[in-house]
C-alpha cells in the first residue's frame, strides 16, 4: 500500500516545483521579448534576409563537413569499441565538445583566415562551425548505435551476414531516427553559435549587409533593437522547432 504523503514530503515537493519554475523563468522572458517586438518582427524580415541566408549557408557547409565525419566517428566508437582509434575519437569528441566557440573561432581566424589567406567568409566559417558541431554528431551517433540491442546484431551474424552487412542493413536502420535527431540538435547548436562565426565571418553589425548572420544580428541589437528583436524571434523559433523535431524523432540528444 502506498503511504500517504507527509507534510515534509509535501514541502520538499513544493520546493522542487519552485526550482523548476525558476529554471523555466528565462524562457518566458525570452518569448516575451520576442513577442513584445512583434510589429517590428513583421516589418523587419525583409532587412533580415541576408542574415538568415548567411546563417543557413554557413550551417549547411558546417553540416556537410561534420555529418559524414561525425557518423564515421560515432559508428567506429560504438561498433569497434576497443582499440586506439575508438578511444581517441571518444576522448577527442568529449574534449572538443567542451571547447568554447571563441577558442575554435580564434584558431580558425589565425590559421584559415590569416594563415592560409582565405579571408572572412563561408569557407572559414563553415569549417569552424563543423568543428563546433562535430562532437555533437559523434556523441549522438555513438548513443544511437550503442542503443541498438546486441541481440539484433547477434541475430544478423547468426544468419550468416558479415560485420559490414550487419552494420549497414540491421544497425543503421534501427539507429537512423536517433542519429537524425542528433544531426538536428547539431544544426540548432550551429545556428546559435556566435563567437566562432564572429571570428571567421567578420564583424558586420548590419543585418541587411552581406556577410551577416542571425546571431550577429541578435548581438548587435544592443545598438539596433528592432532588427535585433526580429532576429531573436527567428532564432528562437528555429532553435525550438529543431529541438521539437529532434525530440519527436526519437530520444533526446
Amino acid at each position: 500500500m502506498i503511504r500517504a504523503a507527509r507534510p515534509l514530503d509535501r514541502l520538499a515537493g513544493g520546493a522542487l516545483w519552485v526550482a523548476l519554475a525558476v529554471v523555466l523563468l528565462p524562457l518566458a522572458g525570452m518569448v516575451w521579448l520576442a513577442v513584445r517586438h512583434l510589429p517590428a518582427v513583421w516589418l523587419a524580415p525583409r532587412g533580415l534576409w541576408p542574415a538568415i541566408r548567411g546563417s543557413l549557408s554557413v550551417v549547411g557547409v558546417g553540416l556537410a563537413l561534420a555529418v559524414p565525419a561525425g557518423l564515421c566517428g560515432g559508428v567506429w566508437v560504438a561498433e569497434v569499441r576497443q582499440g586506439f582509434l575508438a578511444r581517441a575519437v571518444r576522448l577527442s569528441a568529449a574534449l572538443l565538445g567542451g571547447a568554447s566557440g571563441v577558442v575554435v573561432g580564434y584558431a580558425a581566424l589565425f590559421a584559415l583566415v590569416h594563415g592560409f589567406g582565405w579571408g572572412f567568409g563561408t569557407a572559414a566559417g563553415g569549417l569552424a562551425l563543423a568543428a563546433v558541431m562535430l562532437p555533437q554528431v559523434v556523441g549522438a551517433t555513438t548513443e544511437a548505435v550503442a542503443a541498438v540491442p546486441d541481440a539484433l546484431r547477434d541475430a544478423s551474424l547468426a544468419l550468416g551476414a558479415n560485420r559490414r552487412t550487419t552494420v549497414w542493413r540491421v544497425v543503421a536502420p534501427a539507429a537512423a531516427p536517433r542519429i537524425l535527431a542528433g544531426v538536428l540538435g547539431a544544426a540548432s547548436l550551429g545556428i546559435g553559435e556566435t563567437a566562432a562565426l564572429a571570428c571567421t565571418l567578420g564583424w558586420t553589425g548590419v543585418p541587411s549587409a552581406a556577410g551577416s548572420y542571425l546571431t550577429r544580428a541578435v548581438w548587435s541589437s544592443v545598438r539596433r533593437p528592432e532588427s535585433g528583436a526580429a532576429a531573436l524571434a527567428v532564432l528562437l523559433l528555429v532553435v525550438l522547432a529543431l529541438r521539437a523535431a529532434a525530440d519527436r524523432m526519437g530520444g533526446r540528444s
Partner: peptide, 19 residues
C-alpha cells in the same frame, strides 16, 4: 515541462545575453 528545460538548455548564449 521536460521539453521546456531541454530546449532552454539548447538555447544559444547570445539569446541569454539579450535577455
Amino acid at each position: 515541462l521536460g521539453f521546456g528545460v531541454d530546449a532552454l538548455a539548447g538555447i544559444p548564449g547570445v539569446v541569454f545575453g539579450l535577455w
